[in-house]
C-alpha cells in the first residue's frame, strides 16, 4: 500500500530549510500562474524569470532538507507528497495573485525581506546554506528592483493604478509580520550561527518599504495586527487549492517516474 503523505522528521535544521524551500516554491508557483497571461509580454518574461529563480532556490533547499533529514526523501517527495498541514511557508506567499498590483506588492514585501535575508545568510556557518544564500542574494536583489520599479509606476501612474496598489498594500500588510517571527528551534540555530535573526532585518526592511512607497505616493498601513500560522502549517484556505493543482500528477499516478 502506497503512503499518501510522507512523514518528515523535522529537526530544527530540516524544518529551517523546509520553511525557506516552501516559501520559494509556493511563491514561484504563484508567479508561474501568470505565464502566458501577463499584462505585457515583457512581464510574462520577467515574472517567469523570477518564478524560475524561486523554483531553483526551492530545489536546492529541499535537496538540502532531505540530506539533513537523512531518510529517503528528496526534492520531489518533499514538494509533492506533503499535505497542507505539513507545508511551512509564509502566509504571504500563498496569497492568490489577484490583480497585477497584488502580485507585485506581494513580491515587493517578500523580496525586500529576501534580499536582506539572503545577504545576511551568506555569513552562515552552514556551508550549504551560505552557498544557497550567495546565489539567492543576487537573484533577490534583481527581484526587489523589478518589484520596486513597478510599485512606483503603479503608485505614481493613474488614479486607478494608485488605488489598486494601495488596496494591495492594505490587504497584504497583515501577512508581513510572520517574516520576522522566530521559534525555539530557530533560536538555537541562530545561536549556533547557522541561521540569522530576522528581527535584526526589520528596521532596514521598513526603510526600504518606506522609501519606495513614499516615492510611489502610497502609504503603509497604520494597522499593526499581524496574521501568523504558516510556519506551523496553519494556512489560509488558498494553499490547499494550490497544492491540489501542484501535486495532481503525483497524487493521481503515485510512485511513477516522470
Amino acid at each position: 500500500m502506497l503512503v499518501a503523505n510522507i512523514q518528515v522528521s523535522e529537526t530544527p535544521l530540516v524544518l529551517y530549510a523546509l520553511r525557506r524551500a516552501d516559501d520559494a516554491l509556493i511563491l514561484g508557483h504563484r508567479l508561474s500562474e501568470w505565464c502566458g497571461h501577463a499584462p505585457m509580454l515583457e512581464e510574462d518574461m520577467a515574472l517567469s524569470n523570477i518564478a524560475l529563480d524561486l523554483i531553483g532556490q526551492a530545489r536546492e533547499l529541499y535537496t538540502y532538507a532531505a540530506k539533513a533529514e537523512g531518510k529517503d526523501n528528496d526534492e520531489d517527495k518533499l514538494a509533492y507528497l506533503r499535505d497542507v498541514r505539513q507545508y511551512r511557508n509564509l502566509l504571504l506567499v500563498e496569497q492568490p495573485n489577484g490583480d497585477f498590483a497584488q502580485t507585485l506588492v506581494r513580491q515587493f514585501f517578500y523580496s525586500a525581506f529576501a534580499d536582506l535575508y539572503w545577504r545576511a545568510m551568506m555569513a552562515s556557518r552552514d556551508a550549504t546554506l551560505a552557498a544557497i544564500a550567495a546565489k539567492s542574494e543576487k537573484e533577490s536583489a534583481y527581484h526587489l528592483r523589478h518589484a520596486s520599479e513597478w510599485i512606483i509606476r503603479l503608485g505614481d501612474g493613474t488614479d486607478e493604478s494608485h488605488a489598486r496598489a494601495q488596496a494591495a498594500i492594505d490587504h497584504l500588510w497583515a501577512f508581513t509580520g510572520e517574516m520576522f517571527a522566530v521559534d525555539d528551534g530557530e533560536r538555537a540555530l541562530i545561536h549556533a550561527g547557522i541561521a540569522i535573526d530576522p528581527g535584526t532585518l526589520c528596521g532596514r526592511w521598513l526603510t526600504t518599504l518606506s522609501d519606495v512607497v513614499s516615492e510611489a505616493t502610497l502609504a503603509l498601513p497604520q494597522n499593526d495586527w499581524m496574521q501568523q500560522g504558516g510556519r506551523s502549517g496553519r494556512h489560509s484556505e488558498h494553499l490547499g487549492h494550490l497544492l491540489s493543482e501542484l501535486q495532481s500528477m503525483q497524487r493521481t499516478f503515485p510512485g511513477q517516474t516522470w
Binding site: 508561474s32 505565464c35 510574462d44 517567469s48 523554483i55 493543482e245 501542484l246 495532481s248
Partner: peptide, 25 residues
Amino acid sequence: ITRAPTLRRKAALLAKVQDECGHGL
C-alpha cells in the same frame, strides 16, 4: 506549468514557455 509532475519538469517547462515568449517578442 502548474501541474508538471516533478520540480525539474516544472522548471524546464516554465523556461520553455518563457523562451516562446522571447521568440514572440
